[in-house]
């Protein structure tokens, strides 16, 4: 099924945005407001992401699915806090390439897997994950 014009436009918007090389100014904007500089399109602060750990019941034995991860947020952060394995998913390959670099620098590389997938058609077996996270994705 082909995308609607609006959906195709949105996909192109995110591809362009994630493909852009980020400079210090945009990083500083994120750091000052959100507390991190991952390069996100959402509004989830570090504190808000941290609150998800308890709600999700994350532990080192958990397997977490993060939907719409973008460049790796908040899934990689949740993995770092909860000590759990994480599968980061999104559509734009530009974002997922950046996510791969990000998880390696945040020491969760060994616990993270990155999959290009759309939320409505995930290539995973039912009940595979212990928890599912998302931030400003389902809008």
């Amino acid at each position: 099924m082909s995308d609607s014009p609006r959906r195709a436009e949105d996909k192109e918007f995110f591809r362009e945005r994630y493909g852009r090389t980020r400079q210090e100014a945009s990083r500083e904007v994120e750091r000052s407001v959100l507390g991190h500089d991952v390069g996100v399109n959402g509004y989830t602060t570090v504190a808000e992401a941290g609150a998800l750990v308890e709600h999700l019941g994350l532990s080192p034995t958990s397997l977490l699915l993060d939907l719409g991860s973008g460049r790796g947020w908040p899934g990689s952060y949740l993995s770092r806090l909860g000590g759990c394995r994480v599968v980061l998913t999104d559509i734009p390959l530009e974002a997922l390439r950046a996510a791969r670099e990000y998880v390696e620098t945040r020491e969760v590389g060994a616990r993270a897997r990155i999959v290009a997938a759309e939320g409505g058609a995930l290539p995973f077996a039912p009940d595979l994950f212990d928890a599912i996270s998302h931030a400003d994705v389902f809008c």
Binding site: H55, L56, S133, H134, A135, F138, C139
Partner: peptide, 8 residues
């Protein structure tokens, strides 16, 4: 499942 949504 937990997360943040923007909605009407």
């Amino acid at each position: 499942m937990a997360g943040y949504l923007i909605h009407t």
